[in-house]
Simulated scan of single mutants.
Amino acid sequence: MKVKVEIDCTPEEARTFFGLPDVQPLQAKILAEMERRMLAEMDRFSPEALLRSWMALAPQGPEQMQDAFSRLFQQSFGGGTKPPG
């Protein structure tokens, strides 16, 4: 035996019928707070800000670049040898 029941109601009516809480006001508050935080942090993650932060990590002059590479090679090869030059 098959029984088919079709109920035509809105989500709010179904939620009330089953006794579930209405979380729409809480959801609206949380989404508004998330939007506020995201907009406040947008400047930190702009392409210009990211590029500036990455460039600050890079050596500025040729001497600094050479020193950075020599330190890298010394650490990689475990040598106490000084690069030629």
Rank of each mutant, 00 (worst) to 15 (best):
L31W: 04
M1D: 08
F77N: 03
E6M: 06
V3I: 15
G61L: 01
F45P: 00
F45A: 01
F77L: 14
S76Y: 10
E48S: 08
L57K: 15
P25R: 04
V5K: 10
C9A: 15
G85Y: 05
I7W: 11
F77T: 05
G85P: 02
C9L: 13
Q66D: 03
A40S: 12
D8N: 11
T16G: 02
R71G: 07
D8A: 08
R52W: 07
Q60S: 14
R44I: 11
M38P: 00
D67K: 13
R52H: 10
S46R: 14
Q66C: 04
E33F: 01
M38H: 07
F69E: 06
P47E: 04
P25A: 06
A14T: 00
T81H: 10
T10A: 09
P59C: 11
S53G: 08
S53T: 08
K2T: 11
E6L: 09
M38E: 13
A28G: 02
Q75I: 04
P21A: 09
S53K: 15
V23P: 01
F18G: 02
R15P: 01
Q60F: 04
A56W: 04
E6A: 11
D8I: 11
V3H: 13
L20P: 00
L20C: 04
M34V: 09
S76A: 13
I30T: 07
P47V: 01
Q27C: 05
R37Q: 14
P62A: 05
D43H: 09
